[in-house]
Design a protein around this nucleic acid. Structure first.
Lengths: 165, 165
DNA sequence: GGGAAATACTTCAACTGACTAAGCATCTCC
DNA sequence: GGAGATGCTTAGTCAGTTGAAGTATTTCCC
């Protein structure tokens, strides 16, 4: 009985399919996946977000965000606006053209998932949701357990960790 | 009631958690995520794989694989062996040291998922598996429907598609 | 059997995304 | 009002990726 293995395989298929599809969509809209993700997050937050927030949510450093935003500005897809509350802060704002691009490249998950999901029977939707949340909780342990493997690995490793907090 | 949205959120959490964790693990083992993935695939195929197979499975071009394998060879983690059946082909073979590295950086999903999964009740496992396979099938439509969005996007796009077949 | 086309891989030049370290501006708190 | 924290950018570097062009080998078919 290998439900564990089968589950892992299914999970990998989900991961892989999403990744590949995301790249296709970004290309089709004429932007890179990373730039698209920035725009999606800005959009999801109501059309504006700070570099800090973007960095945190994407799991990259602020320097990376600066670079991506630079390019998006050059492309005319977003612009920077200084916050009046805290002048250290910058608001990244979606331009009209950015909104159009986003519209042309709908979120990969949305696109693939929603249509089918909404066709399911009520009880099926409920079961899927419950299962997905369960899995998410299993994987996304929000640093509650400070990842024993990582620690072990780090001891053996010749290189220090790199991922931003 | 927004089960659709909640499901999407859970799915994104799964994606994000896996991605971030993968990076940590690779770093901890002293290799990059891309190189680690190459080794994992080679391992999963019984210790040897052709660049072509790797490119297909990873969804990148062969040129990319060439570069990664070059580095892995330089690191002493794999070596190239010519196929005797078809001399155009190359077999990428895991070295002993490569096997050790792999052992030190267990698959990200394995690590996070398996332990918890195996603690679940029997019926819960069954339900999770069924749900995951369902979702995988929804997302991983294996080109059965030639992605209407992509096509539409491509028409409007200023750039041609890039992802390898 | 021999040549055209297909296939497997590599090389090369370019770009994107990512990081670290260092620096500047601004805010917070005592 | 000054020390330290915070938010962002700059500069330099490196890894991964791609497309295009090139080489070697195999396949196909007349």
């Amino acid at each position: 009985m290998d439900r564990t293995d089968d589950s892992l395989i299914a999970l990998r298929r989900i991961l892989r399919a999403t990744e590949l599809y995301e790249r296709d969509l970004a290309n089709a809209a004429g932007v890179t996946p990373a730039k698209l993700r920035v725009m999606q997050i800005v959009h999801a937050r109501g059309g504006t977000a700070t570099p800090k927030a973007l960095a945190t949510q994407m799991g990259v450093t602020q320097a990376t965000i600066t670079g991506l935003v630079d390019k998006l500005v050059k492309d005319g897809l977003v612009h920077r606006a200084q916050s009046s509350l805290d002048r250290r802060q910058v608001n990244v704002v979606l331009s009209e053209r950015g909104g159009e691009t986003l519209h042309r490249a709908p979120d990969a998950l949305q696109q693939r998932f929603v249509r089918e999901f909404e066709r399911l029977e009520d009880w099926e939707q409920a079961q899927l949701l419950s299962s997905l949340e369960r899995v998410a909780a299993m994987l996304d342990a929000r640093d509650l357990d400070a990842s024993p493997v990582l620690t072990t690995g780090a001891i053996h490793a010749d290189k220090p960790e790199k991922r931003p907090a």
